[in-house]
Nucleic acid binder design. Structure first.
Lengths: 178, 178
DNA sequence: TTGACTGTACCGTCTGGACGGTATGAATAT
DNA sequence: ATATTCATACCGTCCAGACGGTACAGTCAA
């Protein structure tokens, strides 16, 4: 009994990631969630409400992720470097929800942008607790964001240089400035 | 006589950037380009063909941008750092076309991803001509990509740290490893 | 009995696309 | 010199289908 509501949101995310906004129709989402269309509309009264539900989930997961980041035994930076790699999803499922929200950042208008901006701000704040230099903290975050963009485009993440090499480079950069 | 074809592509880009894929309907594009729908369809036989036209333009502009990058008096890196900032568009209009293409990266399926990947590869190759360390070259590119993502979400580019500070940090990082 | 659905039937709107027509100008034929 | 043909570059209308959303009768576990 996973709760149909969550299943609908999961399905919405999946369709957004795999087929984009145009593929995430109410019918398709309902089918993917194994719920009738009527059932979907019972939980989310309109498509806007569905998008709102995704935004709400993003907010929740972002908050939870920030907590995990702060309480990580190796510190926020280590956590961030570990989880911002597309392959390893964040425990809270933040990555997935974030990427899905990115796809509706225009359709949902400003609301999505605001939440997205808040998620970024939360992450940066957590990073700053460990990285004293604000410029460097931002740089680290931007590298993670760049990796996100790669995932968005479905780029192969370049086999030439591994993400692990990138992370260790970042670590040495951080150590040098400390 | 600017050529209706180019005007259509310009309008398509604008709508993609301002309203996203759902706003970029054939009618809307035609209206924005001040061309009738029939006229639009004369130049691009279908919506897929329109997307294809955008991809073609991206390829052209990317090639031209790579040339400008290589022939820049201050070197590829300086050029990249200068132009990857959303505010200052690249001379060839690459930024705009790239961002627009990002919005249809799913609808156009794999074709868009391939071109996007090639643009990234071209940029990285140009960067590598100046930055010997491949990991560092990739890092620089990812920072630029992160800035792109910010533009995509419409994030305020954080007023806390200026992009100029970020650039100078990057420059000093590059100088230190040389 | 209520809440959480399912299933089916619909409706109005919008969208991509097909299609037939038109204006212009250059080439060719007479 | 005039008439005819042809290609290019559009315009405006129409339509089938898809989409979001509504309505409502029924099911079934707690």
């Amino acid at each position: 009994m996973t709760g149909a509501r969550d299943r609908v949101l999961d399905a919405y995310e999946s369709l957004l990631l795999e087929q984009g906004p145009s593929g995430a129709t109410l019918d398709a989402v309902a089918a993917a969630a194994e719920v009738s269309k009527g059932g979907l509309l019972y939980h989310f009264g309109s498509k806007d409400a569905l998008a709102g539900g995704l935004l709400e989930r993003l907010r929740e997961r972002s908050t939870r992720d920030a907590e995990l980041m702060r309480s990580d035994p190796d510190g926020p930076v280590a956590y961030y470097l570990r989880t911002s790699v597309p392959g390893a999803a964040s425990p809270a499922g933040l990555t997935r929800t974030y990427l899905a929200t990115l796809r509706i950042a225009d359709a949902s208008g400003t609301a999505a942008r605001e939440v997205l901006a808040r998620v970024d701000a939360d992450g940066l704040a957590a990073l700053r607790e460990e990285i004293t230099d604000p410029v460097l903290a931002w740089l680290v975050q931007l590298v993670g964001d760049g990796l996100y963009l790669r995932t968005l485009t479905g780029a192969p993440l370049t086999g030439d240089v591994s993400v692990e090499e990138l992370r260790s480079k970042l670590r040495s950069l951080l150590a040098a400035s400390a």
